[in-house]
Amino acid sequence: MQPLVEMKNISIAFGGVQAVDDVSITLYPGEVVGLLGHNGAGKSTLIKILSGAYKMDSGEIWINGEPARIQSPRDARDYNIETIYQTLALADNLDAASNLFLGRELVTSLGFVDEDRMEAETRKIMARLNPNFQKLNEPVSALSGGQRQSVAIARAVYFNAKILIMDEPTAALGVHETAMVADLIQELKKQGLGIFLISHDTREMMELCDRVAVMKNGQMIGTERVEDVTEDDILSMIILGKNPKAAA
């Protein structure tokens, strides 16, 4: 099967620090790949290269078997790559609809922003993703963590993402909301999306992902199918930076 994304030999340095060092990773359609590692292991940096927030120093990105040029978040969007950031990249002072359509507003035939249509569309998609969502006319700063996260996810879903990057999507959420995100991931997977998931929670990753990739100090330690490894194997990869299966 053709991989959806191939990142080949990616490197990036900030000042003297080699944040990502010759890392390669692939993602197939309908697959969830988890990225694990300590803080500063380079997971978020690697993923920000794919989402266009950082420019890599060297390496190649291939999407659907063709080389891709991703220089900015806008480029990434053109490849249907959507990112849900750890820091919830929402403008707190704007309402849900404005955030959902930020950068891609619906406009009337005269070129003016069509607020009513945006609100109607937002109502539709939120009814599907999070039926409890009511506060459509308030700034998102008035929303709970889960509600804010569902706005961020709605953004990715609405614009037909093919490749979804989720950076700690459940970090700010309660138990119920975490379950909601897990269900949503399964749903999107069925639709054939490829998902990169970043998290610190090894157990959660074992449940949600098909494969996990472990990074340490900017280098890729190894990528394994979750059914082939135990949680302890992964922990030792994270802590020791060695792949026990490769050593065996």
């Binding site: 900015s72 806008r74 990249a89 929402l90 403008a91 707190d92 930020l102």
Partner: peptide
């Protein structure tokens, strides 16, 4: 409201 979010939204 959030310069980073704006930038990341393209």
């Amino acid at each position: 409201g959030n310069p980073d979010a704006a930038e990341l939204s393209g």
